[in-house]
Nucleic acid binder design. Structure first.
Lengths: 329, 329
DNA sequence: CTCTCCCTTGAACACGTGTGCAAATTTGCA
DNA sequence: TGCAAATTTGCACACGTGTTCAAGGGAGAG
């Protein structure tokens, strides 16, 4: 049988004071005399006392937890985002309750409901789309909802969007400047809003310029999908440019183009990606891509936590073209 | 002002039953008549009732939380591990409280104390080393402690170790078979136990065989470190083999060897890594490496959660040589 | 010295849930 | 129908904390 955790009653008894004094000692800005404070701290130290956050949260009817919903956490983009977010939360005194949706297609509603049960202060949705009923529930119960790269048809939720349209436009302009005559757009079959936006904005610019485009989409957002795209698309020898809506697919595409389809990059084929994941700068790729600052994105999420409830703030994360060496100059 | 969450009292009132009935309806195996159950469920549905896990945990003096401590979550190895672990926890009805140590060198004690405050059921340490005082505290308070790839000098903690020694030995044997005469060992400057073990085991086999070795160590466990190692080591043209204790460094090393130092791999130089991260199988690398099954590792962690408290189980995660194309046949 | 004001202290309540116990009700059997 | 057994129900307590409220006590001003 294990002994239970030390409670504030134990500490109070040992320090010879009331339980209130103990509580006040550990509460910022409460009124305790230095003498009592010292005795309490010493007793707490000796007994190994730890505040019970569950009881604390029960009282305040809210915890310091922030629920984070995501999927495919091992993909570089997600991993980087989660890494920075979890650091930022901790630094702000918030704890991260991580719910992994396992599959980008799976319904995230049950996960969000779980977060509700923990009376989390806020919910951050990194992937998947929360149903409207849940958005309502968040608002009704005073839980901040922050959605990343999903455009909800609502005006009472914080939304953080990378500027996909500007990014895709930058990519299109760059490929035009490289003199491409026929370009491919590579996207996954998952049809996430982000990918759709990038795909559409790029296509719009290209068709307006009269450039031939061919849109390819299939499979999940992975390296293998990019590889497959290269193998299927590049039998058409007229294609001399490609916009892959995600770096991870761009890297697969590059490998397929060079190794399987015998293309020289950038001489025969210009390739441009999106996200600027760490691997994009590896020497074997040196992928020209559109970067969205992870720092800015993370800061936007953290800032959103402080926003007034029910007030919608749409934050656009700016993008920039990172010139490396997969597009002809 | 926001309305508070719905409580079991509200539900009981609406359903016209006692609060106990509500509680029992949501408790597995409690005794409720079908009639009452139906009324309660309907009322709960209409009001949007959610059990308050904080109050629940307060009562049971333990929550369903599992604290996970890690660092460098965006490195492929860590990301993959966290991804699988968080899925596995969720599937078992446990929630993942993620604490990011931000820096591999930073002290993880404060993070573990935070986990204590949440009365987590178990603590999983992915990186960093918990001080002995905390190990004691875990045991005293009935909190399961699971440490991955850290050898603690204790017999009352669950420890999960990839079989570094067997892996490093496999790597050494393979390089010997490739006919290498002088091999480099590339390791980071962080000196984690895992890396030290791999380094030592490899060196032991090689020196026993009379092969020349040179050990290089510097910087963090990153791609850039591998790149740097190649630039510094390969001015010595006698080196014809390299064991990088981590795939991420092996990939950097490969890029440096090929692009900066003009080596052909595997003709001039054989390279072997460790971990089998997803990037190792990318077409540009096709890195020969030692794999440790992420599935087995994850399963071991989940299994450890069910072990008796205070009983130590040391699980060895088996390794295997994955032949690709960076070692001469 | 007395009065007032401010700081500190302890008692009591609230937070929302699970559960032991005894009463109430239903079921099973003869 | 009558009785015992089994099931269901409600009351009350416990979990560990924050906080309000009134009482206590000390210091400073007149």
């Amino acid at each position: 049988m294990v002994k239970a955790f030390v409670t504030s009653v134990d500490v109070a008894q040992r320090a010879g004071v009331s339980r209130s004094a103990v509580s006040r000692t550990f509460t910022e800005g409460a009124s305790v005399s230095p003498e009592v404070r010292r005795k309490v701290l010493q007793a707490a130290q000796e007994l190994g006392y730890r505040v019970n956050r569950l009881a604390q949260g029960l009282n305040n009817s809210s915890s310091n937890l922030v629920g984070v919903v995501g999927a495919n956490l091992s993909l570089p983009f997600m991993a980087k985002q989660l890494d920075m977010l979890s650091i930022g939360l901790l630094r702000r005194g918030l704890q991260c309750l991580l719910l992994n949706a396992a599959d980008a297609r799976s319904d995230i509603a049950p996960l969000i409901e779980l977060i509700f049960e923990f009376r989390a202060r806020a919910i951050v949705v990194l992937s998947g789309e929360p149903p409207m009923s849940i958005v309502d529930e968040c608002l009704a119960n005073g839980v901040k909802l922050i959605v990343i790269n999903r455009q909800l048809a609502r005006s009472d939720t914080d939304i953080i969007l990378s500027d996909d349209i500007a990014g895709a436009t930058l990519a299109a302009e760059r490929l035009k400047a490289a003199g491409c005559r026929k370009v491919a757009v590579v996207t996954s079959g998952s049809g996430t809003p982000t990918q759709l936006r990038r795909c559409k904005a790029f296509s719009d610019v290209m068709t307006a310029a009269g450039t031939d485009i061919v849109v390819w989409h299939d499979g999940p957002t992975t390296y293998e999908t990019g590889l497959k795209a290269a193998r299927e698309l590049l039998s058409d020898r007229q294609i001399d440019g490609a916009f892959c809506v995600t770096d991870i697919m761009a890297i697969g595409f590059l490998d397929g183009a060079r190794n399987d389809m015998g293309r020289r990059v950038p001489e025969d084929l210009s390739v441009i990606g999106f996200d600027d994941i760490p691997q994009a700068s590896w020497r074997s790729y040196e992928l020209t891509t559109i970067s969205q600052s992870f720092e800015v994105l993370t800061e936007a999420v953290l800032a959103a936590l402080d926003h007034e409830l029910g007030q919608s703030v749409i934050t656009n994360v700016p993008v920039a073209l990172i010139e490396r060496s997969t597009v002809r100059r």
